[in-house]
Design a protein around this nucleic acid. Sequence first.
DNA 1: CGTATTTGACCAGCGC
DNA 2: GCGCTGGTCAAATACG
Length: 517
Amino acid sequence: MEKQQQHRRELTFLHSGDFLRQNSAVSDDSTDRVKPPIIKEMDFFSSNNNQSHDHDHHHRHHQQEQESKINNGRSSSLFDSGVNTGLNLLSSTPGVSKNTTNEDKQSAEMSALKIELERLHEENRRLRSMLDQITKSYTELQGQLFMAVQKQAAAPGNQGEQKEKVNGMVSLQQLMDPRPSGALDANEASASDDRTQELSISPANTTEHVSAHDQDGAADQTSQSWGSPKSPKLDQSKINEDQASEVPFRKARVSVRARSEAPMISDGCQWRKYGQKMAKGNPCPRAYYRCTMAVGCPVRKQVQRCAEDKSILITTYEGNHNHPLPPAATAMANTTSAAAAMLLSGSTTSKDGLGLPTSGYFPSLPYASTMATLSASAPFPTITLDLTQGPNAVPFLRPPPPAATFPLPLHGYPQLLGHPMFAAHKLSALPAMQLGQRPPASSMVETVTAAITSDPNFTAALAAAISSIMASPTNTNGNTINNNGGSTGNNNSSNGVPAAIPGSPQLPQSCTTFSTN
DNA sequence: CGTATTTGACCAGCGC
DNA sequence: GCGCTGGTCAAATACG
Ligand SMILES: [Zn+2]
């Protein structure tokens, strides 16, 4: 029992720590201070910027330790005798009672603190950059892995499941429950479709360039997904190149279904509604939103509700952000991009032959099944994440043993993990188990791990989606929950480090749809 | 007064 | 070629 819970937590963290965290708060022993939902952002920030500052308790302890270290190391050297330094340590504790030489002590303390602070800053920076890199690498690896896997799968006969393919869709996960997928289709199927696990692989070729916007997005995708980490996008000139590079990614849509009464899911980004249309099959209108955080941000999202089930909200994301986004948003973005990447890679492969050998790759992923569905119904490849099952789904990600290695949650830095850790995690894990090579799996966890390995992005995406969904439902009233309240350009800032977040948009264009059941 | 939302018009793609 | 549908634009409006 406990173990499981912990695992979950870890997983959560790995994927989208923050979000989950909120939910998981229920049983947060280690992660206590999760205050309100808003935290998500906070967490991230904290991880990035103010480790020592904001974090109170946990950090405090750490700080002390660090301080002591510093004292021993630097400060001591600076100040010869650790006298003052010692104070530092004491300071945290009741030790400091004498004042006579306070000044000296204080100054020493100050200097020490300063140093430490600087050090922390640097560390943060480093971590950030590392994180970025890791994320990128991770994405890249993921893509490669995916392709490789698919190739392998394609070769032999993995087609056991192709039957479904006949319909045009293949089921990714064997287990998936029947549910409608494709956001687009969702309209029709909306609530009642049921089987949706279709993973269709449609030749992405068709949807190459739709419009200038798309191009931008594509370019971004390309560069980003493939390795070039940060591409500012906007480079029209580069677009050609990117295209030339020809990445498998074309246009992917990720649709997520989640339960939320709120009109929109809060993903941490700012959206401007630019249109609304009545869907044919649904009494409920479909709303079109565009990301306003950046001028050129190609990201668009559609929100649709099932008339029958108002509780089900389907959100479809398209494209990746080309601007830094708040942590919360980062999670989403990652998810989206990951999902998109998966989808694209998958589709590509599948295109050649066979659908997605998912079964092979996701040997036992009950959860996954819950959420991920690929469908080609639309012109673009679409991944549908079903959070519908909500709570059940959430647990889907189980942390592999390695997770234990990174018990970040315990520390209370789950946020940190948010991405980086998670990425790192995966990276480390990947090599070990690429595609199921890993033999011994001790248990489900490993199995899951394997699955995850196969498409980490996917998982991440799911997690993010879930988390986001969960978050939104939590506050029914607002989707807007967190951040920004209002002003345009900026974010919230709970902490203060609103500035640019490393969270770089990784995959280029992806559309994610969230739906709620 | 500035911004976000609303809502009809407009356009492109697709099927018949 | 016509009509339908999805998606977007932009004027008008609402909101703070
Ligand atoms: Zn954006």
